[in-house]
Amino acid sequence: MSETRIASELSKEGLTLVEPTFRKESELSLDQRTDPDYRLKELQRLSGKELSLICSKCHHCRR
């Protein structure tokens, strides 16, 4: 693939020109680094409720 020129493309696209930032792996626990559902589980744990999830793509109900 060709070298990407993200900033210029984003500018055309009207996207926010903010450099993405990432957490250092050392700041995250093993579960946070490896479990794709960590945030989802944490939210359920904190709320004590089952989540009603939807997707952000075609907006079908995901239940």
Partner: peptide, 22 residues
């Protein structure tokens, strides 16, 4: 529309597990 990375240079694992925004 806030970019979190680009799959030409960032892995999905990196973006999903370490993006500050997420």
């Amino acid at each position: 529309p806030i970019p979190m990375g680009n799959l030409r240079k960032d892995s999905l694992l990196k973006i999903w597990h370490t993006s500050d925004l997420l």
